[in-house]
Design a protein around this nucleic acid. Structure first.
Lengths: 341, 341
DNA sequence: AGATTGGCCCAAAGCGCTTTGGACATGGGC
DNA sequence: GCCCATGTCCAAAGCGCTTTGGGCCAATCT
């Protein structure tokens, strides 16, 4: 059933039917009702291919996820972000077009989406400190928003959390508990968020005159086994840390495992603070693990980014929206005073 | 730059340029080369909206993920499946259209994708025992493939792993180690895979004349905290199990935490077998946790499903492909003989 | 009364491709 | 020398919508 047939069955022109369905005013109320009813009855849905062509818009947002040697995996954090954004897209009538490509085809994927007009906007995740996609995005001329920031001054829309201050705060919290040897189990520090967290950690140490020790600072893909391996190595060293700062709940779980194997209890023998993206399947609350955590729901970020992007597509021009979200430190059961030596 | 302009710049007709670009034979080799070169130089990419309309195909596959009360989360398993499928789509020139909707809009989402012609095929994940989407899918008439099976006899394409036999095998393995009280920490048993796993578990028990105890059998969304809570409760009961069967690594991690808190060591005091979907960020190998596991990479399943679906779209008709993958039990360090009482 | 407005509707022109149905040479076979 | 196959190209007709630019008539204004 297409528009022409529907129009014929109503003895109306396609023009009128189209207008009735799309809410234009120049159609009598009675006629509109008749059209809507017939469309409903026939289960008519305008052909999106034709619609997109005629309107010159795709009603779709592109997400590109690139898999590299280092990050072979689809980051679990992406998934929750996607869920948040996806909810908004569905509500607003946008499609979500997801491109999953090898990293060396990342630029090509963006070009393809833009040049072929498959999407009306792009969602950019996990920017690096020096983000090579930025010049590309300017060139493409599509609306976009970055979840996160970059080193360089930016005049594009972004949304980020206060990573530096969160980790500074977390480090200070541990310092206040008497910990002096604090390990950093960070994400890949080529990513801006990880670099900022490291900076916050270093600033806090420096403010107390503590020299950072590279031997207990690390950055890698945030998996459980990475957290485990790092903690195992640190704890077995001559000068083990008494506290850990982890960039995600996943490595924190690994740290807990390593500690457990060594008979160490979190919050008593070893303290751990994790950044908690509030991943839905790693619920960290209530009766749960209750990691002390810097917490910021990644899913909410996805929602908000989607809203901002859609707003920008709807009304281009204007100053780029830039939102910085503060992060709360919630105290759980994995931190405690530094044990006496 | 569109086709007409490109053609004009080459003193050719749009017809010829289109044919040259799309590899049709009726174009001189020299002309084709000229066209390709010019297209490359101009960074020309055919407008996908127009292309889709003209071809009557969308070159896109739809995935619908519905969030319900019980499953508010985007399942981490979906993410890896998506990654696998996405790789194949990218390689084959298909877009991945992801709809994330509240469960009560699930059917509407499928209808919308189909009736508006946004996609050429549908990927169905996580079928329930009595899957309400199946009649809907038949009605829609789009090619689709189900990752998993259903109770009812089916004449549609699917790909599944041997869940029942895997869990039967795992249960037998524990029984052979002398365990008699084995807890089941399953996924939501409205889903077919979980029901089958339960059946495998029950069959193995029955074969040894052991009556299953509902008090240590459970099914829910497979989170870490679910595994933790279940294990905590079971272990603190009057008649605690000596072994656990978990439907995913995530609850298994929770079980490990509960055991650890109680001073119990996995593989010695308590045995655990998990089903391992080989989620990339929960790597279970090498130096890692090495859960004894029934293992089947969900990502590979995603790849294969995508391949099968695309093949079906390319050549409709023919008998539906149905693939059943066997699952290997890999012995890790979380299982051991039942401790003497 | 004639002129003007506004409400309602329609015909037709795109949107930028692909594809059908030729057109026009050229060359080989008889 | 004629015919037909072959190679190469093009004009034009869609694909199914949206949107522009009227047309017509009843209601309102002067």
């Amino acid at each position: 059933m297409n528009l022409k047939e529907l129009a014929a069955s109503l003895n109306l022109s396609p023009t009128t039917v189209s207008r009735a369905l799309n809410g234009y005013p120049e159609v009598r109320a009675e006629t509109r009702a008749r059209v809507l009813e017939a469309a409903e009855a026939a289960n008519y849905r305008p052909n999106s291919r034709a619609r997109r062509l005629a309107m010159g818009r795709s009603m779709a947002i592109g997400h590109v996820i690139s898999l590299s040697e280092e990050a072979q995996m689809i980051n679990p954090i992406f998934a929750d972000f996607l869920a948040g954004a996806g909810e908004v897209y569905a509500r607003e009538g946008y499609d979500l077009v997801l491109s999953i490509v090898p990293q060396d085809q990342e630029a090509a994927a963006y070009r393809q989406l833009a040049a072929s007009g498959s999407v009306d906007g792009l969602m950019i995740q996990a920017p690096r400190c020096q983000e090579p996609r930025l010049p590309l995005l300017k060139e493409l001329g599509l609306p976009f928003i970055v979840h996160g920031r970059t080193d360089t001054a930016s005049d594009h829309p972004w949304l980020d959390i206060a990573n530096r201050s969160a980790f500074k705060q977390a480090t200070n919290f541990l310092l206040d508990l008497g910990h002096r040897r604090i390990a950093l189990v960070n994400g890949l520090e080529q990513f801006d968020y990880a670099a900022r967290r490291r900076r916050g950690y270093l600033e806090a140490l420096e403010a107390r005159g503590i020299a950072p020790d590279p031997a207990i600072m690390r950055g890698a893909e945030m998996t459980e086994s990475y957290g485990y391996a790092s903690a195992a190595e640190f704890l077995d060293s001559d000068d083990p840390p008494t506290a850990f700062l982890a960039s995600s709940i996943l490595p924190a779980i690994g740290i807990r495992r390593a500690a457990g194997e060594r008979g160490l209890r979190l919050g008593r023998d070893v303290s751990v603070i994790a950044h908690d993206d509030v991943l839905s399947y790693l619920y960290n609350d209530g009766d749960g693990p209750a990691f002390t955590a810097t917490r910021s729901p990644i899913r909410k970020a996805g929602q908000r980014c989607a809203e901002l992007l859609i707003a920008q597509i709807g009304a281009p021009g204007g100053a780029p929206v830039q939102e910085l979200w503060q992060v709360e430190l919630t105290v759980g059961r994995t931190t405690g005073p530094c044990p006496a030596t």
